[in-house]
């Protein structure tokens, strides 16, 4: 029996301190241990981006990170994106532009797009499409997602 390890991190702006089995992915840690089910599993092998979270300022596939690895790190998930009572601009433009259908990929896209706009406030369409290529969507054909990101960039 492998012992659980203690992890202390900052999650969505709050300190967290928990025990997790060392082989548990960050994705499962968030969902099963910490109750944050907004981060989704699509493939569990780093090829769909549904589990995208922001770790220390970089977007990562949380299925390819161990929960134990975030010790000392700052992690932001979809649950930390909106301020109380106020959506993030991207969340608002995704709604306005109908940039989601089934919605399972949406948290991943939002976390990815947020990181892009924080780094590059006015990306080109090509740049948006490149940046988001690690996030698969099967419903929208991406068109409205790209437009929602463009709209957020324009109105920021």
């Amino acid at each position: 029996m492998v012992e659980k390890v203690r992890v202390r991190a900052t999650l969505n702006g709050e300190p967290v301190d928990f025990l997790v089995a060392p082989y548990t992915s960050l994705l499962d840690t968030l969902r099963d241990e910490l109750g944050l089910t907004g981060t989704k599993e699509g493939c569990n092998d780093g090829n769909c981006g549904a589990c995208t979270v922001n770790m220390d300022g970089r977007i990562v596939d949380s299925c390819c990170v161990l929960g134990a690895e975030i010790d000392g790190s700052t992690v932001e998930t979809i649950e930390g994106m909106a301020e109380p009572g106020k959506l993030h601009l991207l969340q608002q433009t995704f709604l306005e532009e109908a940039a989601l259908q089934c919605g399972i990929c949406t948290p991943g896209f939002l976390v990815s797009a947020k990181a892009l706009l924080e780094k590059e406030p006015h990306p080109s369409e090509t740049r948006i499409r490149f940046w988001l290529s690690g996030n698969l969507c099967r419903c929208t054909g991406y068109d409205k997602i790209v437009k929602a990101v463009q709209k957020a960039a324009e109105s920021a």
């Binding site: 969902r31 944050l36 089910t37 907004g38 981060t39 989704k40 599993e41 998930t77 979809i78 649950e79 994106m81 909106a82 959506l87 969340q91 995704f94 709604l95 306005e96 109908a98 989601l100 919605g103 399972i104 949406t106 948290p107 939002l110």
Partner: peptide, 20 residues
């Protein structure tokens, strides 16, 4: 083109899918 009713839950990660 109104905002869909379930949209708020879906952009905030609150929507409950089968695995959740």
């Amino acid at each position: 083109r109104p905002i869909r009713h379930d949209g708020y839950d879906k952009v905030t990660g609150r929507a409950i899918y089968g695995a959740d």
